[in-house]
């Protein structure tokens, strides 16, 4: 397809390209990796710099670090109870990695690594494989009994078991696509409205006035994206907790897709 057929280049922002010149090209470092590293450094910086005073009455930065810690800890604790201790660092890393990725992506000119299905699917597969390993270790072969819901008549088994297996296998897909699609949709909308502004700007004097409207929409969208970015990180983390609870805690709950 020719370039002029897409007057709105909504997807160009997701193109990966090598950074750091020839070094980056030979090491295959993409700009998404730079953002990932920035996110990791910011997370660690928040915790290390924030907690350095070790104050009993926290300052602003320390309060932020503690707020983040306690928020994630309560989330994990609610789901996993006394087993929270083992999985908390993983969920914390996951939550912060996604949250900072979403928010860094909102900085104009930067890049959203959570808008790449490869990244989110990898994260979701890590969660899935971890859940699988934990359930096999904790529940052993009893784990496979979950694919036939308790109390269901045996003659429905040929119907129910495939459905349960498919729903179990679709978890990483829904988990990753949810995050990926949210991020892509948000950033595409940004781009589309920004393109409207440019289009209207080229329509003479009146167009330049009307062109303010898409900018205003983008400002509102930005606020919504701040909400969505936090919400999707929260949803990813809480679903991780729910899956891990199903795996690590014996009782079988109603599966959340």
């Amino acid at each position: 397809m020719a370039a002029e057929k897409h007057s709105i280049d909504a997807l160009g922002q997701f193109v990966l390209y090598p950074v750091f010149g020839n070094v980056g090209r030979s090491l295959h470092i993409a700009q998404s990796n730079v953002l990932m590293a920035i996110a990791a450094i910011l997370i660690l910086g928040l915790l290390y710099l924030g907690m350095r005073p070790r104050a009993v009455v926290p300052g602003r930065l320390q309060a932020a670090a503690e707020l983040l810690y306690e928020f994630v800890y309560n989330m994990v604790d609610d789901q996993l109870g006394r087993k929270a201790h083992a999985y908390f660092p993983f969920v914390f890393a996951l939550f912060c990695f996604i949250l900072f990725g979403n928010y860094l992506g909102l900085i104009p000119g930067s890049f959203t690594y959570t808008s790449h299905i490869a990244v989110t699917l990898t994260l979701a597969l890590v969660v899935f494989v971890l859940g699988l390993i934990v359930s096999l270790r904790v529940q052993g072969l009893h784990f496979f009994a979950h694919f036939l819901p308790e109390g269901s008549p045996i003659f429905l088994a040929p119907l129910l078991v495939p459905i349960e297996i498919i729903s179990y296998l679709s978890r990483p897909i829904s988990l990753s696509i949810r995050l990926f699609a949210n991020m892509v949709a948000g950033h595409v909308l940004f781009e589309v409205f920004a393109a409207f502004t440019i289009m209207l700007g080229s329509l003479g004097v009146i167009g330049k006035f009307i062109a303010v409207a898409p900018v205003a929409v983008n400002v509102a969208m930005f606020a919504l994206e701040l909400l969505v970015g936090a919400l999707q990180a929260y949803v990813f983390a809480i679903l991780t907790c729910i899956y891990l609870r199903e795996a690590a805690v014996e009782t079988h709950d109603e599966a959340l897709v």
């Binding site: 990966l16 470092i29 993409a30």
Partner: peptide, 13 residues
């Protein structure tokens, strides 16, 4: 880069 970003991302994570 689509695959390499996963490698570096895994290292970073």
């Amino acid at each position: 880069l689509l695959w390499w970003q996963l490698v570096w991302g895994a290292v970073i994570f």
